[in-house]
Simulated assay, not measured.
Amino acid sequence: MSKLKAAVFASGAGSNFQAIIEARDLACEIVLLICDKQNAGVIEIAKKHQISTFVFNAKEFASKQAYEEKIISELRKKEVSWIFLAGYMRIVGSTLLQAFPGKIVNIHPSLLPNFPGKDAIAQAYQAGVNKTGVTVHYIDEGIDTGPIIAQESVAVFSKDTEEALKKKIQEVEHQLYPSVINQLLQTK
């Protein structure tokens, strides 16, 4: 039986993308990277692993609907059935949500609903919390408001720097996300 095909959307360095594609016995084949930053590090990771990429500049499109329609076209060409966001710094719009209902998942570096949106690690660090973590959730039209699939907490110690906290959170992300992907795909 052939594996389901999935795409990863990312905008940055690509550490979660790397963790997903290097996960042992992943229940899907990552066939496409969608990226909105022309020089993001994640693109080099995709090239190294011979994964197709679609890199776009949102400003070159008339609207969010227009670039999401182009993304959908690229996803259809590769027969993608699931989308995993891994540091994708754009809000997913209704065009993409309607094309992949219940099949778009995100990882967020906090225990949602705490610290949604950008810079969640910095928000948690500055708030002085003693616990934060990682959330994997379905995407909806809000910002980090979709139904939660899994969470794992990370202790914050007084000696932690923001950078140390980021590293602890990334270690959890790199284990949790591939595990959750497998659980989702094995039950669908």
Rank of each mutant, 00 (worst) to 15 (best):
Glu141Ala: 05
Val92Gln: 00
Lys5Ile: 02
Leu185Met: 10
Thr187Met: 13
Ala19Glu: 08
Ile169Pro: 07
Gln186Leu: 15
Gln126Pro: 05
Val42Thr: 05
Lys37Trp: 13
Pro109Asn: 04
Ile107Asp: 07
Gly117Thr: 09
Arg24Ser: 14
Lys70Asn: 01
Phe84Arg: 02
Glu162Ser: 06
Glu44Lys: 13
Val42Glu: 07
His137Cys: 01
Ile51Pro: 03
Leu185Ser: 10
Ala164Lys: 08
Phe157Thr: 15
Lys103Thr: 10
Ile91Asn: 01
Glu163Ala: 09
Phe100His: 03
Ile43Gly: 10
Lys103Phe: 15
Pro101Thr: 05
Val172Thr: 13
Val134Tyr: 09
Thr161Lys: 05
Lys48Trp: 11
Phe100Arg: 03
Arg24Gly: 15
Ser94Gln: 09
Ala127Gly: 12
Lys70Ser: 13
Leu112Ile: 12
Ile143Tyr: 12
Ala46Leu: 12
Val80Ala: 01
Glu141Asn: 07
Val136Met: 00
Lys37Asp: 13
Val105Leu: 07
Glu29Gln: 14
Ala7Gln: 02
Ala155Gly: 10
Leu26Tyr: 00
Phe17Arg: 14
Ala155Phe: 13
Gln123Ser: 02
Ser73Cys: 06
Ser63His: 01
Gly142Val: 05
Ile83Lys: 07
Gln186Glu: 15
Thr187His: 15
Leu96Arg: 10
Ala150Thr: 06
Ala122Met: 04
Ser63Trp: 04
Arg24Gln: 11
Asp119Ser: 12
Gln50His: 03
Thr145Arg: 01
Gly146Arg: 05
Glu68Met: 08
Tyr125Gln: 01
Gly41Glu: 06
Gly93Val: 14
Lys166Ala: 11
Ile121Glu: 15
Leu4Asp: 10
Leu32Ser: 12
Ser81Arg: 11
Val129Gly: 11
Ile45Ala: 04
Ala19Gln: 05
Thr187Ser: 14
Glu171Gln: 06
Gly14Val: 07
Val136Ile: 08
Asp144Arg: 03
Pro116Leu: 00
Asn182Lys: 01
Ala7Cys: 08
Pro109Cys: 02
Leu165His: 11
Lys131Ser: 02
Ala124Thr: 05
Glu74Ser: 12
Ile149Pro: 12
Leu185Ala: 13
Ala62Cys: 09
Glu74Asn: 01
Ile121Gln: 05
Gly41Trp: 02
Thr53Lys: 03
Leu184Arg: 08
Asn130Ala: 03
Glu74His: 14
Thr53Ser: 15
Glu29Ile: 04
Leu185Asp: 11
Asp25Tyr: 03
Phe115Asp: 12
Ala13Trp: 03
Leu75Glu: 00
Lys3Asn: 14
Glu69Pro: 02
Glu152Thr: 07
Glu163Gly: 10
Lys48Pro: 02
Leu176Phe: 05
Leu26Lys: 02
Phe17Thr: 04
Gly102Phe: 10
Ile83Ser: 07
